[in-house]
Nucleic acid binder design. Structure first.
Lengths: 210, 210, 210, 210
DNA sequence: GATGAATGAGGATTCATTCAT
DNA sequence: AATGAATGAATCCTCATTCAT
């Protein structure tokens, strides 16, 4: 059996195990058994638990980003579509992908961020890529609209954080609540966020002093 | 030394260790040493790692909820304040508390949700209490504004979920990013969400078909 | 509360715990709690787990011997009763006492013999007393009947062992089998053993060469 | 070194340790060291202390039963031998085997019965097999001899229990008392029991009323 | 290319025992 | 006379990791 195939089997098994058990609770024994190979082979191909976990993070992050990017680009191919339609397409792809790959999503969202520096950096890279992506959709407009030079990168990053957090929370809620579809979750999020984002793009800001 | 004091020391040490290392990686040895007591004493008072972790979750959740509730109630004492001011007060308190207790927040947000049923339920209870709280602030108004009877409990619940999720994500981001204050995080979230909520209350909804 | 009473409560608790859990599995904590006192008091009165266990063995052994001896002596008060009637009385008392004090019996029969020298010696002392007692009933006669000087102490001890072993086995069987009374067990044992003993007293011996 | 060999070494060490120290007092560390392997290997092959102990019980019980059965069958091959000769052969084999494997016998007789349900059941099975075996030797004859229909299965079972109990107790005694041979123990038991059994088979019964 | 065999290190949990009061 | 508070030392068990083949 060619190496590439074996390696994919191992990563599949690892993602599933890490996603369900967590990094520490997942044992190399279980992963090897689930992959249908012997433990030394796992070490031969992937060197250590840490590297294996890192490989999982990278693969799942790339897959998620690709899914979102593809959807948006497919959408953007049609000319003249407004930004909200593109965001909608991306969110729908996000909710769909995470619903279809719950273990991969768990690895990224729950496990990777919870275990020290080697892994947090990997996820940070993905988050940056996502943020850059979102920035591409809303950032330019927002920054331009705001004459206020204080509205900078950090503000955009904060918005992206809020959007992702809301999306994650909704994804979990949608999974737990019977009858809530990915589309419905995406619509709820758009309802929640879009007008706010739009106002921001128009230069309006909320402030405690009214 | 009286039992109550020792117990508090242990919980402090446990929250710190769990928050930094994670549930599995935290060792009872380290917790005991940090608390300045012997391991058997930890077991005598808190029975097991699981119960110790649960006790941490409960204490931190109660403290967080109390902080938010107190802020809102202190604010509500002043008559005639609009709903957005109350939400702003609650959010500021939330971000302030999580910034001041980063380990406690890590326990609630990252660790507790990542480790199976005994703990997830504890956090879910807190989250529900939070959501119910938010619902109390925005629910009535939203429901009245919408003549559309299809806008029901589930929509309100979805919005609350999105708001809480966004807040949690921002809190995490604020903790990790140097120089982001609680007020700034709260403002970001208000910017992000409030106008959208306001529009919803006025009966406007976003839909993919424009 | 006077010391003697407290001490009895502790021994009661200890016998029950040792009998049900075994020497190693029984914890001083459980014994102290069952006795309704604090652990240091147990140590103040009985010094150590070993000494506590020894005290249990001594008390239970004395009680069992007393029960059997009393029954036989009460019987022997009536003049002219044959040896088998006395043995019958003793066996019945034995089965009755062990049935009424299962934990005490477990301590003597199962626990004490299973745990090294300090305790085995105690039980050996009781066994010797029992054997001497049985010897008093059957030994003299047997030894006299056997002109063969090779029939000595060890033969009598062997017979006592066999008798006690059969009795123990029957006691357990009687406890486990519904509807088997102490009297029935005693009768079965007499049936099993008495004629053999009688023959021995008459100088007959079985031998493989017929 | 092949697995089967290692496993036998471990069982040997375990039987010795359990037999001498008792189930609770025996430590996996000691067993592993005595077997000349590391502790994890013991767990890899035998899973847990409980399963290791169960494996010991099963192996020793099977060996003992096989020894007795072989002896009787070897004896029965010679035609025309009476029942007492077969019983004699079985008892001699029993005492010989227990004398040669004192730790195995201690495991079966003392340890296994003293420690709760998982183990007691294993020994009960062996004991039942033994009893059934004895019943096969004496049962038919006894039942036929007794016209009294009240002499039923339970009586035979009781006798078998008594015989097995006496044999076990004598084996223990023979092991502990220097200079007592297997043949001597067997002879003592035959002396003790056989004539009684014979009388029973002839329809005679002892009763307290003479 | 693949594995059966093996282990050093560490982690949760329990227990007999003591002291200061 | 009695106890609340505290611990050193084991004990069971698991896991990431490595060789020899």
């Amino acid at each position: 059996m060619p190496r590439a195939v074996r390696e994919r089997q191992m990563l599949d098994a690892a993602v599933r195990t890490f996603g369900q058990r967590g990094y520490r609770a997942a044992s190399m024994d279980e992963i090897a058994e689930l992959a249908g190979v012997s433990k030394p082979l796992v070490y031969l191909y992937l060197n250590s638990k840490e590297e294996l976990f890192t490989a999982c993070i990278r693969r799942e992050a790339a897959a998620l980003i690709a899914a979102v990017r593809d959807a948006v680009e497919r959408d953007a191919a049609e000319p003249g579509l407004p930004a909200d339609r593109q965001l909608w397409a991306g969110l729908t792809a996000f909710f769909t992908h995470t619903a279809e790959h719950p273990d991969g999503w768990a690895v990224l969202h729950q496990q990777a961020r919870t275990h020290g520096e080697p892994f947090a950096a990997e996820v940070a890279a993905m988050r940056d890529e996502m943020a850059a992506f979102v920035t591409g959709l809303i950032g330019e407009a927002a920054r331009e609209a705001h004459q206020d030079p204080a509205f900078g990168d950090r503000d955009v990053a904060g918005l992206a954080q809020a959007l992702v957090g809301a999306a994650e929370s909704l994804a979990q809620w949608a999974n737990e609540t019977p009858g809530v579809s990915a589309k419905e979750a995406a619509a709820t999020l758009m309802n929640f966020a879009w007008t706010g984002l739009g106002n921001l793009m128009d230069g309006q800001r909320w402030s405690p002093s009214r």
